[in-house]
Design a binder for these strands. Structure first.
Length: 539
RNA sequence: GUCCCCAUCGUCCAGAGGCCUAGGAUUCAGCCCUUUCAAGGCUGAGACACGGGUUCGAAUCCCGUUGGGGACGCCA
C-alpha cells in the first residue's frame, strides 16, 4: 500500500504534529481522553495538526465496530482530528493493520544493519530463562542462544523445525538518555533492556516497531502519552535511530488514578470504586437518569470511568474537558474556568504535573454545574428535550405546545437542572393529571393532618377565582388567604405543592401552578382531596 | 523479585530559598436568605510524610527512611 512513497526520510515539518493512538476496545477511557486532550491542545496551541492513529496490530475482525464509540466520543467532546480514520490524510492509511508492508520493510532494514536478529527460541525456552533470572533475583536478559548470526545458523535452526521471530539487538552497555518535556532528563541503562521482539514468527509485527515507524511516517513531532510508556521509550528510540529517523520529542504525562486512591484508574474496577461514596453518588445519579430515559445500561460503557457515561447522563463536554484539563495541569494558583479558546491559548507541557492525580467525579460535577449555569435557557432546553423524548414524556419531536412547556419547566427549574438528564426530575409537568405519582411520605406529612382538607378546599376555591393565572397573582392570593385563615404560610403551601406535584420538593410553587394552568391545578387538588377522603373512610 | 518514578488540606492544584502565621478550587460543618429543594452570600474546619544535613533563612536544595505507584509480554 505504500505505493511510490519514498520511504526513508520525511522532511521534518515546521509544524507541530501530535497523535493519539487508540486501540479499538469499544470504549473511551477517561484517562485516555485526558491524554488526547493534552495532545489536541498542544497541537492547536502551536497551530499544528492532531491526528488519530488506530493501533490495531493485534487485529480482530470487528475493528470498525469497536472504534465507533471512540470516534463518537471524540466528536462529542469536540476534539477534532486533522488526519486519521474517516477523514484520511496525506499519510494514509492510519490503521496499523494496513501498514504491514512498512513495518516489514523496517524489519528488513533493522536486520540488514544488525540492529535486529532472527531468533529461533521457542516460547518455552524463553520462559525457562525468564524463570531462572527470577530465581537468581536478577532482571531477565535473553542469552541469545538461539540467535541466528549467519544464514547457516538460520538453516540449522530451521532444519530443527524452529521458526524465527525478530528481536532487537539491544546495546548491553551505556545508557539511553533523553529529555522528556514533562519529566526532565531521563536515563535508562541499555544493559537492562530486553531484546524485544519486533516481529512475530508469523510475520506480523508488534506495537513498538509499528509505533516508531508510524510516528516517523506521520511526521509526528511530539509524542505526548501516558507514563506507562516511559520505559518503552528506550526501545522505540533504539528502533528510531537504527532506522535513521530523527526522533520526536517525548512528553510522558502521569496516569490518572482511581478516586480516593493512587493506583491507575481502571475500567474493570468499577465495583471497587463504587465503595467510594462520592463516586457511587455520581454513578447512582447517572443510573437513575438512564433508567428514566430508557437508555440501555451496559456495564461495558455505563461506567464513570468511560466517557460515554457522561454523554448518556447529559453532561456538557466542555465541562468534562475543563475538569480533565486540571487533572495534572494548571495555569496558576487560581484560574480554573477555561473556555476552549482559553485552554488552547494557555496550554503548555511545562505546567504538567509529575505526580499522578486521582479522578474526582464530585469536582467534575461542580464544573458541570457551573457550566450549566452559564448556558442560556434555549441551550438548556435543547439539551434537556432529548431526555424527555426518550422517557416518553413528550413526543419525538415535541409539539410546539410541548416545547413551550419544556421551556417553562427548564426556566423555572433553573439551577436545579445540573445535568441535562435532571429534567426528568419533573415528570409531573408532562403527565396527565391522573398519572401524577404521590410521594407517600410527603402526602402523609403535608396532607393527612387534621384541618388540612377543608383548608385546601377553601384555597382551591379561591384559586379557581384567581385571574390572571400567573405566579405574581398567586403569591398575592396566597398571602391574602394566609391572612384570612390566620395561619402561617407553611401551613398551606406545602399541602398545595404535594397535591399538585405529588412531591415535597421542587422549584417555586407559584411558577409551577402557572405552568400547569388552572384546569390541571384544580383537577389535581380535587384528586388529592378525593384520595384523602377515600383513604380516610377506608381507614 | 529487578529497574524506575512520585510525595503540600479528604481530593485537584499554586508554591521554582526569604512575599508562607502556606494561597485557590472542591468537599464537609455552621449561619444568613427562603414556601420546599437547589442556587447564592458569609464564617469555619482541613496539608508541607518522617529524620538528617546545606543555608543567616527550606514546603522549596542534598541524603536517608517510610509510604504510594509504575514498568518489567511473540499486549497496546
Amino acid at each position: 500500500m505504500s505505493g511510490g512513497r519514498s520511504t526513508d526520510y520525511n522532511p521534518r515539518p515546521m509544524t507541530v504534529r501530535t497523535r493519539f493512538a487508540p486501540s479499538p476496545t469499544g470504549y473511551l477511557h477517561i484517562g485516555g481522553v485526558r491524554t488526547a486532550l493534552f495532545n489536541w491542545l498542544f497541537a492547536r496551541r502551536h497551530g499544528g495538526q492532531f491526528l488519530l492513529r488506530v493501533d490495531d496490530t493485534d487485529a480482530e475482525r470487528n475493528v470498525a465496530a469497536a472504534l465507533r464509540p471512540i470516534l463518537d466520543g471524540f466528536r462529542w467532546l469536540g476534539l477534532d482530528w486533522d488526519e486519521g480514520p474517516e477523514v484520511g490524510g496525506p499519510y494514509a492509511p492510519y490503521y496499523q493493520s494496513q501498514r504491514g508492508d512498512r513495518y516489514a520493510e523496517a524489519v528488513e532494514r533493522l536486520l540488514a544493519t544488525g540492529a535486529a536478529y532472527r531468533d529461533y527460541a521457542t516460547g518455552d525456552e524463553i520462559q525457562a530463562e525468564r524463570e531462572e533470572a527470577q530465581r537468581d533475583k536478577r532482571r531477565f536478559l535473553y542469552s541469545r542462544r538461539w540467535m541466528a548470526e549467519t544464514d547457516a545458523d538460520a538453516a540449522r535452526f530451521e532444519a530443527e523445525g524452529r521458526r524465527a521471530a525478530v528481536r532487537l539487538k539491544m546495546p548491553r552497555e551505556g545508557a539511553c538518555r533523553f529529555r522528556d518535556l514533562v519529566r526532565g532528563d531521563v536515563e535508562f541503562e541499555w544493559g537492562l533492556e530486553q531484546d524485544h521482539v519486533v516481529q512475530r514468527a508469523d510475520g506480523t509485527c508488534l506495537y513498538h516497531l509499528a509505533s516508531a515507524v508510524d510516528d516517523h511516517d506521520f511526521a509526528i513531532t511530539h509524542v505526548i502519552r501516558a507514563v506507562e510508556h516511559l520505559s518503552n521509550t528506550p526501545r522505540q528510540l533504539f528502533i528510531t535511530t537504527a532506522l535513521g529517523y530523527e526522533p520526536p520529542a517525548f512528553a510522558h504525562v502521569p496516569y490518572v488514578a482511581a478516586p480516593g486512591g493512587a493506583e491507575k484508574l481502571s475500567k474493570r474496577k468499577l465495583d471497587r470504586y463504587l465503595r467510594h461514596h462520592e463516586f457511587k453518588a455520581i454513578y447512582d445519579r447517572g443510573l437513575s437518569v438512564a433508567e428514566r430515559s430508557r437508555i440501555e445500561v451496559s456495564p461495558e460503557t455505563f461506567n464513570p470511568v468511560v466517557v460515554d457515561f457522561y454523554r448518556a447522563v447529559g453532561y456538557d463536554p466542555d465541562a468534562l474537558l475543563n475538569y480533565l484539563l486540571l487533572v495534572g495541569w494548571s495555569l496558576d494558583d487560581r484560574t480554573e474556568r477555561f473556555t476552549r479558546d482559553e485552554m488552547v491559548a494557555h496550554f503548555s507541557l511545562e505546567r504538567i504535573n509529575r505526580a499522578a492525580a486521582s479522578f474526582d467525579p464530585v469536582k467534575l460535577a461542580a464544573f458541570q454545574e457551573r457550566r450549566m449555569q452559564a448556558l442560556g435557557v434555549d441551550e438548556r432546553v435543547a439539551r434537556a428535550t432529548p431526555f424527555l423524548e426518550r422517557a416518553g414524556l413528550v413526543a419525538a419531536p415535541p409539539s410546539p405546545a410541548e416545547l413551550a412547556r419544556v421551556r417553562d419547566v427548564v426556566a423555572a427549574a433553573g439551577e436545579r437542572i445540573k445535568v441535562a438528564g435532571d429534567v426528568l426530575d419533573y415528570p409531573e409537568f408532562f403527565q396527565a393529571d391522573g398519572d401524577v405519582a404521590y410521594d407517600g411520605k410527603a402526602f402523609d406529612k403535608r396532607l393527612r393532618k387534621d384541618g388540612v382538607a377543608p383548608r385546601l378546599r377553601r384555597f382551591r376555591d379561591r384559586l379557581e377565582a384567581t385571574r390572571p393565572f400567573d405566579a405574581a397573582t398567586f403569591e398575592r392570593t396566597l398571602h391574602e388567604f394566609v391572612e384570612a385563615e390566620g395561619i402561617r404560610i407553611g401551613q398551606v403551601i406545602h399541602a398545595v405543592r404535594v397535591a399538585v406535584t405529588g412531591k415535597a420538593v421542587g422549584f417555586g410553587l407559584f411558577e409551577g401552578l402557572a405552568i400547569l394552568g388552572p384546569d390541571a391545578c384544580l383537577a389535581r387538588i380535587d384528586r388529592a382531596l378525593a384520595r384523602l377522603a377515600s383513604q380516610d373512610s377506608a381507614a
